[in-house]
Design a protein around this nucleic acid. Structure first.
Length: 475
RNA sequence: GAGGACGUAGCUCAGCUGGUUAGAGCAUCAGAUUGUGGUUCUGAGGGUCGUGGGUUCGAGCCCCAUUUUCCUCCCCA
């Protein structure tokens, strides 16, 4: 007796109707990736836990789904260990494996492991699910698909430009209105350096990122808690032109307007920071490239110096994509990582890539009703079942129809015609062919168009030969 | 990990200050129509009111605990 069947928190089943729509997204994304010369790979759902830990920041590590060792996972663990060790340390001993948290780190591992077979620069895409032990809420799932495109083994900023073009092409084809936000980790490092807190880049970045959400006053509190001095904070707000130059008082909770901090101002501010200047130059180059091909682009690209991204491994350009017409977290994000393969023993291989969040894109498109209507039609014609003698007659016809590339099916059971037609109606099958003894003797089928509304009940559907039907369906 | 809301038929929800046998729409199934669906009409099935305890003569409703889902924070796709 099945009681209380359910699926784990944050996971979902997908109905045929939903899958048709999801496949439409995957197909669109994949077609664009292929068009730009990227090739597919897949990696296992699980990685060694040690491959994943330490790549996503403290918060990220906590959200990795760990897999308990098979067999006696308590082997070699004493009562004292349990009492004295941290949960993280214990988990590392009881769990050798974990579910992948994103596709970028497994990709870096793949590149290192297969370095001799790979031709660099290596352009790959990967569309697979990832898992995060997050608390589910709107647009947030514990199992979701990422569609990653990365190019590894090339320092050229042309790759960044290409990724922006890919993002633009994907969302243009899906009919989504988006804005690409652009920043550079080196600029953030430069800022941290200039204000005298070079070791706090990540804290500063994450706090800045929240400015438009929680307001500058709360950003200030957060930075204070992270141990950033009053002087440093004052300098920081001066850069972003918030607060009065004399002190810490914040004048506005309004979201930061990137255009207020002109790139040229920032360049001047960061002139004493080597790394900061590099970041500024990179942004300039990307923007210049983009200006040259501008007519090709459909979406808005914005420089936003407060954009951070929490993932630890980014070192250069960072991207984030937001839907313009729907309140939803980022639907696509990524950046450049200079040393991700270095962690696995292959230094000096820089990569850059972005990840499309298929599930969030689905939610946004659903909300905006952007899915094409006729995507649900699968079987084009149903042959009704009239018993033993008539089955072969129908199957012969179906064989020919399928040979013509048209999807057809025979109803498997000889039940009242009424029910067979009801099935066709529910399946939204547009045509039905009846082949009973009468039709057999006349070498034809009664051909029924399901979307035709009839007021009278008289069965006056036309009879057609197989050739006539095929010709009609091919239109 | 912190905070908030919710849970009544397969789905969406009513259900009065606690009072007899817990309702509606949609969906399902059957019949009207034995070779004609969708539309229409008629009828039927379907509930341990999330779970466990408590208060009460009496609980879907009040109290406590627990759990689920949803939402917010943290963080992210």
């Amino acid at each position: 007796m099945a009681v209380n069947v359910s699926i784990p928190k944050g996971t979902r089943d997908f109905s045929p109707a939903e899958m048709i729509r999801r496949k439409y997204i995957f197909q669109t994304v994949e077609d664009v990736f292929r068009l730009y010369g990227y090739l597919p790979i897949e990696t296992p759902a699980m990685e060694n836990l040690s491959t994943l830990t330490g790549k996503y920041g403290e918060e990220g590590d906590r959200l990795i789904f760990k897999i308990l060792n098979s067999g006696n996972y308590l082997e070699g663990i004493s009562v004292e260990d349990i009492q004295n060790s941290s949960t993280a340390k214990l988990a590392a001993r009881m769990c050798e494996k974990a579910l992948r948290y994103d596709l970028t780190v497994p990709f870096a591992r793949y590149v290192v492991q297969n370095r001799n077979e790979i031709t660099f620069p290596f352009k790959r895409y990967q569309i697979q699910p990832v898992w995060r032990a997050d608390r589910p809420q709107k647009g947030r799932y514990r199992e979701f698909y990422q569609c990653d495109v990365d190019v590894i083994g090339s320092n050229s900023l042309l790759n960044e430009v290409e990724l922006i073009q890919i993002i633009d092409a994907v969302f243009q084809q899906l009919g989504l209105n988006i804005t690409i936000k652009l920043n550079n980790r080196k600029i953030l490092s430069g800022i941290a350096e200039v204000i005298g807190a070079p070791d706090k880049v990540l804290d500063i970045a994450i706090a800045l990122d929240k400015a438009d959400k929680i307001g500058w006053e709360n950003v200030d509190k957060e930075l204070e808690n992270k141990g950033i001095s009053r002087e440093s904070r004052t300098l920081l707000y001066d850069i972003f032109d918030y607060g009065e130059r004399s002190g810490l008082s914040i004048v506005s909770n309004a979201p930061p307007a990137p255009d207020r901090i002109a790139l040229s101002n920032l360049k001047n501010t960061l002139k004493d920071s080597n790394i900061g200047c590099q970041g500024i130059n990179e942004i300039y180059k990307i923007i210049n490239f983009l200006n040259d091909i501008n007519p090709v682009l459909d979406c808005k690209v914005e420089f936003d110096p407060t954009l951070a991204r929490g993932l630890n491994y980014y070192t250069g350009a960072i991207f984030e994509v937001k839907a313009n017409d729907v309140a939803m977290g980022s639907i696509c994000g990524g950046g450049r990582y200079d040393d991700l393969t270095g962690i696995f023993g292959l230094p000096d291989v820089s990569g850059v890539g972005v990840s499309f969040g298929a599930d969030r894109i689905y939610d946004v498109m659903n909300e905006l009703e952007l899915f094409p209507e006729n995507a649900a039609i699968s079987t084009k014609i149903l042959f009704t079942n009239h018993g033993e003698n008539e089955i072969m007659y129908a199957l012969e016809a179906i064989k020919e129809i399928r040979r013509a590339g048209i999807s057809a099916e025979l109803f498997p059971d000889n039940i009242p015609l009424k029910k067979q037609l009801s099935y066709a109606n529910k399946r939204k099958i547009p045509y039905v062919a009846l082949g009973g003894s009468i039709e057999m003797s006349e070498k034809c089928f009664t051909f029924k168009e399901m979307n035709v509304t009839k007021n009278d009940n008289t069965p006056n559907d036309p009879k057609k030969t197989l050739l006539e039907i095929i010709a009609l369906l091919k239109k």
